[in-house]
Amino acid sequence: MTLATLALTWRHLPAAPPCPRPRVRTSEAVLLSVATLALLLGISQTTTWGWVDPRTLGLFAVGGLAMAGWVWLTLRHDEPLIDLRSAFRGAAAAPNITALLAGAGMYMGLTLLMVLVQVDTPSGWGLGQPVAVAGLMLVPYSAMSVLGSRISLWVGARISPGRVLPIGCALYLASTVQLALGHDHVWQALLSMALAGLGSGSTFATLPVLLVRAVPAGETSSALAFNQVLRYIGFSVGSAVGVTVLGLVSGPVPDEHGFVAAMAVNAGVWVLAIGVVVRAIAAR
């Protein structure tokens, strides 16, 4: 599919008119890469090493120092790799912050659902399904994600996309609340995944539209790429935090109380995302 997309792009997209190419500073690219790698690796290993393990703390320290160096270099230049000044203010702030929060909420929900479907504790909590069934839970999620993206783009062409974005977040919030309240049967997990897919597809299809409208035409590539970086950081944070909350509340063996508590945290993330978007709409 990637090769086919590349061929279609090469064949049908018009070439850009000749223009001066900005110089990419290697120092910025290297620092951002090191920061992202160290932070994401550290976050992903918290469930194995723990949050206070020296290896985890070391990765966080390296990532934090590299990130600080990258921010310092970026703010010094008039034509940076990524314009941080415009990324978190004005019309671009809401889609960027929402990408981080929605990424965290999305992967937190998916991770907790995988635990619910596969675990079978002595107390009787959990659905106790094999890994194949757990994988099939993503089928309604994927299908509804495609549908959600199509619907959001269709609606966004008729009303402001900024008004579509909180609806997508609210749909994922509804799936989180639904699964927290009812999780005794496989069909409830499937229903939650269908709602989550609809909300996820709608949310992540709307973010690029808002960003393209918010930044100058010459900065769309860097703006969209940075939005993807924020999204992936959210993915790692969400999955790690979900498992951490589950373990802190449940103890060594996951239980229903810990699951509900983790889902409540996930719901809070989506409420925060909706608040960010609604406030941005009200300010415009």
Rank of each mutant, 00 (worst) to 15 (best):
T5W: 14
G162Y: 07
D184P: 00
R85P: 05
S250E: 05
G42F: 04
R76W: 05
A99E: 02
G42S: 10
S222V: 04
L3C: 03
L165H: 08
L32Y: 00
A68K: 10
L110F: 07
V119R: 06
W187S: 09
A4G: 10
S160G: 08
W49H: 11
V164C: 08
R21G: 03
A15N: 14
A261C: 12
A282Q: 15
M114L: 06
S200Q: 12
S152K: 04
N96Q: 12
M106P: 00
V186N: 01
R163V: 07
T121E: 09
S175W: 02
L40C: 13
L195N: 02
T26V: 14
D53M: 09
V209Y: 03
T111S: 13
T48N: 14
G168W: 03
W72D: 09
H185F: 10
S145A: 14
V71G: 07
G199C: 08
G268E: 10
N227K: 04
I97H: 03
V62S: 08
Q228K: 03
F235V: 04
T26A: 15
T47V: 11
L153R: 13
A223K: 01
L3D: 15
A194E: 02
A38T: 06
V24L: 15
L81V: 10
L113P: 00
R213V: 00
M67P: 01
L37T: 14
I167G: 08
P254R: 07
A132N: 07
S239Q: 10
P18H: 13
V164E: 07
G162M: 10
Q129P: 00
L171V: 12
M137E: 01
A174G: 08
I151F: 12
V62Y: 09
S192Y: 02
T26R: 15
T2Q: 12
L81E: 06
S27M: 10
F88R: 09
G234W: 01
V117W: 00
L40P: 00
G103H: 02
V241P: 00
A180G: 13
P54N: 11
T74D: 10
A4K: 11
G156D: 11
A104L: 08
V71T: 10
S239H: 03
A132T: 11
M193Y: 01
